[in-house]
């Protein structure tokens, strides 16, 4: 039973990571857009997503959306998709800020060198700027990933049968505390694994 819970926890983690990072990068470009309304809107989005509790956002997307007038009936989602969507949108906002900071750290001279060599802005972004940004943001991304491992436990609040959910019900039904320890060890191991993975990545991006 706990294993099934771990499955949901891992799936939520994986889906959030692979969707929120590209989404966050997209938001970064929008936030830096020269079109003022686009950048303002993006920044407002980031402010709201970072400025309100993830738990509240979960409740909003799962319980709240269906109550919206007119469109509500089209926005009824199962628990798991609702959780994935919420996590992806929430983490994308954090990644957006991390990437924005990373972009600001790139020396102006890099853009100038690329320009005088005749590279297009697309080539400059993908061949010159992003690889250097990755190096800068890796530690912060690792930090977010570790936070996400533990944030997945929030999904049990909308009734997803993740590791936290099963752990709680085991503790209640058996009246013993060991499942809590088991869950703690799992989250801890997962974190250790991620830490290792990211330090290896950081090693690779040393230049």
């Amino acid at each position: 039973m706990l294993l099934k819970g771990i499955g949901f926890t891992l799936a939520l983690f994986a889906i959030t990571i692979v969707t929120s990072i590209p989404l966050g990068l997209g938001l970064t470009f929008l936030a830096n857009s020269r079109i003022k309304p686009v950048s303002l809107l993006t920044r407002a989005y980031v402010l709201v997503m970072r400025g309100t509790p993830l738990m509240l956002q979960l409740f909003f997307f799962y319980f709240g959306l269906p109550f919206l007038p007119y469109v509500g009936k089209y926005l009824i989602m199962d628990r798991f998709p609702a959780a994935c969507l919420t996590f992806a949108l929430n983490y994308a906002a954090y990644f957006c800020e991390i990437f924005r900071g990373g972009l600001m750290s790139i020396d102006k001279g890099q853009y100038e060198a690329a320009r005088v060599l005749g590279l297009s802005s697309f080539q400059t972004t993908f061949r010159i700027v992003l690889p250097q940004m990755v190096k800068v943001v890796l530690p912060a991304v690792a930090n977010e990933a570790i936070t996400l491992v533990k944030d997945t436990a929030l999904a049990s609040a909308i009734g997803i049968s993740d590791l936290m959910h099963y752990t709680r019900s085991l503790v209640n039904s058996r009246a013993e505390v060991t499942p809590f320890f088991f869950a703690a060890v799992f989250y801890l191991l997962f974190t250790v694994l991620l830490t290792r993975l990211f330090s290896r990545l950081e090693e690779k991006f040393k230049f």
Binding site: G109, E112, A113, V116
Partner: peptide, 20 residues
């Protein structure tokens, strides 16, 4: 403009090599 400028070599004070 890019095409015209790219017939011109520019060397900067701070080199601006691509570090990666």
């Amino acid at each position: 403009a890019r095409d015209i400028c790219s017939r011109t070599g520019m060397v900067f004070q701070h080199f601006n090599l691509f570090p990666h």
